[in-house]
Computed example of a mutant assay.
Amino acid sequence: MKIMLDAGHGYSTAGKRSPSGMREYEFNRAVAAYAREELENYQNVTVYFAHSDSRDVPLQERTDKANRLKVDAYISIHANAYQNSWNSANGIETYVYVTKPKEAYELALKVQKYLVNLTGRRNRGVKTANFHVLRENETAILCESGFYTNREEEALLRSDSYRRTVARAIVAGIADQYNLKKKPAPEPAAGTTLYKVQAGAFKNEENADDLVKRLKTKGYDSFVFKDTDGLFKVQAGAFKEKENADALVKELLADGFDAFTYKD
């Protein structure tokens, strides 16, 4: 599957910055980079960028590239604005073309659901617009992931953790829509230490399965295994580096799950 990620605008785009000076493109490009990292974990997926850090790529050039490559989905990543000064407009919305193409609309609904669930921001819904990138690509969506003219949301848009969360939500929606499968984890070499993240342990397997379902609605991949002590345990990740496991635990705790790192 071919996916094009489009970080809207560019470093030098006129306007397109918050009242305190944050460029929208700074957010857009970071989310695109994190989304590509996430997508590289899936089988049979090729990711392309429509944007460039060196210039503001014209819209026609972006969509021509997507059509030349025959991408299956085009994801345009943006932050929103209302007027030019601080105000109360807030929330997340996702756009499709005015004719509501079936596949694009289904994708937009899923991505919007994950964006709202994972960020906890206001749901402004899936909307239609005659934007160039939506009009010129058959399956295209445009995500507005918060207002940089809102003080609270601008602070989030600046934060690395929020950017990663938005990327994870977009990828979760794509994976859900297209039933993408994760690449099998490589077998660790003999003697390799792994740092694993456990999110729960239960006597009843149904309780463990319920936790996995809740984790997946928040964009976390996890699975149940029966340990030697007879408990059904939920694993949410395994890493060679402890700091990566600890970072996942921090995200899980922030989302209201109990989790901890252990060495295996």
Rank of each mutant, 00 (worst) to 15 (best):
P19V: 14
E153S: 03
K2Y: 11
M4L: 15
M4T: 07
V249L: 06
G219M: 02
Y42T: 04
A208V: 00
T119R: 05
A30K: 10
S159N: 08
N244F: 02
S12G: 10
T13M: 04
N204L: 11
E206S: 15
E93D: 12
A73T: 15
N90G: 10
R214V: 06
R121D: 12
R124I: 00
H9I: 08
K196C: 04
E152K: 15
A247C: 08
Y25A: 02
F225G: 03
K16H: 03
K70V: 05
V116K: 09
A81D: 05
E153T: 06
A140E: 08
L118A: 10
N44G: 08
L211N: 00
A32L: 04
M1T: 15
Y82Q: 13
L134V: 10
D264L: 13
L180F: 12
D176C: 10
E26W: 09
P101G: 15
E40S: 15
A32W: 01
I75F: 09
K216D: 09
Q235Y: 07
N123W: 00
V126W: 02
Q43G: 10
I141W: 03
V126E: 02
W86M: 07
Y74D: 07
R121I: 06
L156T: 01
H51M: 00
A201K: 11
T119M: 01
A50Q: 04
S20I: 08
V224K: 01
T128G: 13
E40W: 00
L156W: 02
G120Y: 04
G120E: 03
M22I: 04
E152W: 08
A185L: 15
